[in-house]
Design a protein around this nucleic acid. Structure first.
Lengths: 340, 340
DNA sequence: CTGAAAGCGCTTACAG
DNA sequence: CTGAAAGCGCTTACAG
């Protein structure tokens, strides 16, 4: 395997000069650089990142911690991060935190604690103090996208406002019996994404002077089957059926639409449904939703990481530092005015 | 940052002994090992993988090349790979090949060619000769899961047989006007996964002595919206409407069911639909399908990689080496006998 | 069973 | 603008 010494010999220079020529750091005569580059190309030289990392302390590798790969939102974020990292010349090392205790500890205490990654992006994970500490002790920059915990740089939509907006949309259409399909543990974890959306729902109902019917709040897995199952409960009850439903994600909303179909409840005539995400299927299911832009969010997270690592224009301020990430209400055919 | 020298000093041994004690390689007195381990724990020592890689030539890192993250099949495979790699103590470096030419070349010629990964798993990618060469020249073991090209270890279902089985299921229900929603470029690329499924479809029709109506074969994006759009074409024609449809993936099949609903065509009474994959939504949509097991496939690919790298029990033969990966026909409510 | 030494492949002051 | 030397943090023969 060709090493830099081989390139140097072939080009008739020292290893130091070869290194400078190839990396672009330090002064090298134009002609010398040309010779070195030609030599490198000739023998197919590619620098060993390990050796370089060892001396520079930089790995050009970012760890991404994510609880799911196979949920639309997370998949989009991951793709956005990957694309941005790749074009910055960085690698992405993936840690899929499927919530399992021991493995999760291993990721933070071993995998991420080593000097293999320059920084960590945590997507939608509720970090414990211990986990954040483990990273801080190793001086790893940490960027959080959504989730909770972690004192470090955080990028997030305002999930309470999202829940409120979705609910207000239904209220303004005249609905008064509005259900909420919340994420699992939303009530128990008020700081989580799902907890915040639930809070926004409750706030909107309350500020309209209405009572919240607790039977109309059901927690379910944030997935299409979860939404389906949850909605069956909500819609199956003979007397308490809502006229509108705010689902905490588009996947849940689509599941709910499916459940309504199964029960012979017509959407939107008998049931308005709104979701959150801007899922790629939303248009096909004619679903009203509060869109967010996960691919873009991933790109932004990488921007922040690059800044923390001192790459690129350090002068660039963080874009709207601290401001919530953009969202937008997109009204489609799944919501309409309350039946009367 | 604590280095092995610090551990050695604290334990009162040499770096060599500390290294042996921590790695478990070579002889170390039990008592010495205990002292070293205590010292390492005390100062929170974690070995630098870069330094170790430099001398051992092993990175304990595997590159995964995958064309999508956000398709169910690929997401499942990725999760399966990640889990297996993590439990083997390996890292996963993700390269998402979104088909773009220049970036794709960069992945193979630069990222994967460096000494950062010990091996490469290519999931569902049609590799060019050049790409395989680039890896071979660097002596990187390559394991292919599906896809085509690449002389190396390959794990795959028998996609032709899958297409044939799905079509035969419909034929045996008495259908004679059977459509196929194929993947994009299926006809142009007979060696691709989608090309093979198409071939299986054609073979099944032909062996029943029926003519293939080319108008009933439509290529579309292998996704839910793709299936929806493709099915609208297929089902919208007043005279040529099929009574059964074989979709090349469950996502396409679900899109097709949605399209049928939109057109007021009842499934399965007027249209039987079968897909491929065993998608997590299949049960909810009551979809008949030929299941495959992507999570398990990912795990298997890691098994093979570990063998190629000489990890674990080398003696273990490859499981059913060369045999196609398992699939299974699961009949649900979306298929029924032909209307007469 | 343990230690001194060499070396993995780079980059970076430091001289010149 | 270029080179000799040191060193990043490990592991691995080689002696003992």
């Amino acid at each position: 395997m060709a090493a830099i010494g081989d390139v140097a010999r072939l080009a008739g220079v020292s290893k130091a000069t070869a290194s400078r020529a190839l990396s672009g750091r330090g002064y090298v005569a134009v002609e010398t650089r040309r010779r070195v580059e030609a030599a490198a190309a000739e023998i197919g030289y590619i620098a060993s990142p390990d050796a370089a990392s060892l001396v520079t302390g930089r790995t050009k590798n970012v760890g991404v911690v994510i609880p799911f790969v196979n949920r639309w939102f997370f998949g989009e974020v991951l793709e956005g991060i990957e694309r941005a990292l790749l074009s910055a010349g960085y690698d992405l090392t993936l840690y899929n935190l499927a919530g399992r205790g021991a493995e999760r500890a291993r990721v933070f205490d071993f995998f991420l604690a080593r000097k293999r990654v320059d920084a960590v992006i945590a997507v939608g994970v509720d970090l414990t103090g211990h986990e954040v500490d483990a990273l801080e002790r190793r001086e790893k920059p940490l960027v959080c996208l959504g989730g909770s915990g972690g004192a470090a740089a955080r990028l997030a939509v305002d999930d309470r406002a999202v829940g409120q907006l979705a609910t207000e949309h239904l209220l303004h259409l005249g609905h008064t019996r509005i259900a909420h399909l919340a994420g699992l543990d939303a009530a128990a974890r008020p700081d989580s994404v799902q907890g915040r959306r639930l809070q926004g729902f409750l706030d909107a109902i309350a500020s309209e002077g209405l009572e919240v019917d607790r039977a109309l709040v059901v927690e379910a897995d944030v997935s299409l089957p979860g939404g389906y199952t949850g909605a069956l409960q909500l819609l199956g009850h003979p007397r308490r059926r809502p006229t509108a439903l705010f689902a905490a994600s588009d996947e849940m909303a689509i599941g709910a639409i499916r459940a309504a179909e199964r029960l012979g409840i017509s959407v939107p005539a008998e049931l308005s449904v709104i979701g959150v995400d801007g899922h790629e299927y939303a248009e096909m299911f004619d679903l009203t939703t509060v869109e967010q832009y996960p691919g873009e969010q991933g790109r932004l997270a990488v921007d922040v990481v690059m800044r923390l690592l001192g790459e690129g224009a350090l002068a660039d301020p963080l874009p709207d530092s601290g401001a919530p990430l953009p969202t937008r209400l997109v009204v489609r055919g799944s919501t309409t005015s309350a039946p009367r």
